[in-house]
Simulated scan of single mutants.
Amino acid sequence: MDDNLKWKTLSSEYLFKDTWLTARKDRCERADGKIVDPYYVFEFPEWVTALAITEDEKIILVKQYRHALGEVGLELPGGCVDATDANFEDAIRRELLEETGYAFESVHSLGRTSANPSTNSNLMHMFVATGGKKIQEQDLDENEEIEILEVSLEEFFQLLEEKRMVQAMHITTSFYALRYLNKLNFSK
Rank of each mutant, 00 (worst) to 15 (best):
A91P: 10
I146D: 05
N87W: 04
N122I: 02
V81Y: 03
P77R: 12
I135H: 00
E154K: 15
E161K: 13
A129I: 06
R164N: 13
G101I: 02
E137L: 13
K163E: 14
E98K: 15
T84D: 11
P77T: 08
N116F: 11
A86L: 11
S121I: 00
S118E: 14
I146P: 05
I146H: 13
G101R: 02
Q136D: 10
E150A: 09
N87T: 09
Q167M: 10
L123K: 06
L76R: 03
C80W: 13
L149R: 11
H125T: 14
L149G: 02
R94Q: 04
E147S: 10
G132H: 01
S106E: 14
R112E: 12
E95Q: 15
I92M: 10
I171C: 01
E99R: 12
A115T: 05
L160W: 06
G79C: 06
E95V: 10
M165A: 09
F88V: 05
F104D: 00
R94F: 07
A115Q: 14
D90K: 11
E162L: 14
M169H: 12
F157E: 07
I92S: 01
L97G: 06
M165N: 07
F156H: 02
E154Y: 14
E89D: 10
L96K: 01
A103C: 09
V166I: 15
S109F: 08
A86C: 06
M169C: 02
E142W: 11
F127V: 01
H108P: 00
A168E: 15
T119R: 15
I148D: 02
V128R: 12
L110D: 01
T84I: 13
L123F: 15
R94L: 11
E142V: 15
T84V: 14
E89V: 04
D85V: 08
M124F: 03
A91F: 07
E75L: 11
A86P: 05
M124T: 13
Q167T: 14
E144N: 07
D139T: 06
M124Q: 09
H108L: 07
L96M: 08
T100R: 00
S152H: 02
N87Y: 01
L110T: 03
V128T: 04
V151Q: 01
G101S: 00
K134M: 13
L159N: 13
T84E: 15
T130I: 04
G79F: 03
E105Y: 11
L153Q: 05
E89W: 06
T113Y: 06
R93L: 05
A83E: 09
H108K: 13
L76M: 05
E161M: 10
L140M: 10
G131M: 04
Q167L: 03
Q158S: 08
M165T: 04
K134P: 10
P117K: 14
L153I: 02
T130F: 03
N116T: 07
A115I: 15
